[in-house]
Design a protein around this nucleic acid. Structure first.
Lengths: 186, 186
DNA sequence: AGTATCATGTAAGAGGTTACATGATTTT
DNA sequence: AAAATCATGTAACCTCTTACATGATACT
């Protein structure tokens, strides 16, 4: 019943798509892998799992197979899987590109497993398109306002542009790795 | 008295360093410039200004020079300027690089004006150093875990690495523009 | 016996989102 | 007269951070 799951919830859903995990497992993933952009705070993770469970997206079961303290292993429910797939296949908007590339990349990272390689290719094409529109806009802004900006301000803007350009180059690289799946048509 | 000002507060402080602005001016900046990563929501901006004022970092004065509705023009106080400079000169940590490059770039964008070009050069060197440590770590992770990851997951990680590499190249570019200020020493 | 690791959770407070509310002036 | 623009603000709700609390098992 709650609105849109926040990024942390999506990340957890994606991890659970691959295998059942406990809250503690998730914390370890967030401390020990490049998913370290997420907080490993128990005050974030356990309430997030609770919400996901209340929304019927995951279900946790207490296990004590090993002699350790009880741990609750969480699995995706069919509703959770559906909601996750819905997120993965949402269109790539300009707003996503401007405000939240991090979310876009998180989505993409789960895409092959979640909804298949054809969807990954569609995503890459859409992202490429948005970047090809947005980058020139940033360059026009730099051209008209750059001269009057302080040097570090101008450089910071250039850094942003370069980072979008790197992303655009990456989409091309990524598309070639999916090469044989690409269709010719518009 | 409150803890650390959130990013939005810092951004506002930085804008006010350059000129006095109203809440509405700030909203327009966030909708019409590359600072669009910030929300232009009045529910974010007006409370933020209120907090900054309560903390003594800015002071707002009602003006009605033009015949329009009253507008409150905000200016930095000396305490606000001091706090802002303190933020600008904070060390660049590994955690900043992993979790919040956006904050780093926001800091840098105000650096010339806030604390001078020498500080900008120090910042760039420190950032360069952290990147030179972190990028190889990510590459090691990719080398050991990449083969077992789904294609889109691996590509997403590669995208992250490329984006850090682009940032590293940018630090070199930026340092050359400050060229004459660089010292030879260690 | 003490410490590290595994493991789950809560409480208070801060700050953001969305939506609503208001009101003056300028343009059509 | 209506709509657009300028302009400021509040209220409910949600989620995250920080800090605390608890407890079992394994290692030294």
């Amino acid at each position: 019943m709650s609105g849109q799951t926040p990024l942390l919830g999506r990340a957890i859903l994606g991890l659970l798509l691959q295998q059942p995990l406990s809250g503690y497992d998730i914390r370890r993933i967030f401390t020990q892998t490049p998913m370290a952009t997420f907080s490993d705070s128990p005050g974030a993770i356990y309430p997030a799992l609770k919400r996901l469970e209340a929304d019927g997206l995951v279900r946790g079961r207490t296990e004590r197979s090993t002699g350790l303290r009880q741990r609750r292993l969480f699995r995706l429910t069919p509703a959770g899987r559906a909601k996750f797939e819905h997120w993965l296949t949402a269109p790539v908007t300009r707003d996503d590109v401007v405000r939240d590339t991090e979310e876009l990349m998180l989505r993409f990272s789960f895409m092959d497993i979640g909804v298949g390689e054809a969807a990954s290719v569609r995503f890459l094409r859409a992202l490429q398109h948005e970047l090809q529109v947005y980058i020139p806009e940033l360059n026009r802004y730099l051209g008209s306002h750059g001269p009057e900006m302080p040097r570090s301000g101008r450089l910071a803007l250039e850094s942003g542009i370069r980072s979008y350009e790197a992303l655009l180059q990456w989409t091309r690289h990524a598309l070639t790795t999916y090469g044989k799946h690409q269709k010719g048509g518009k």
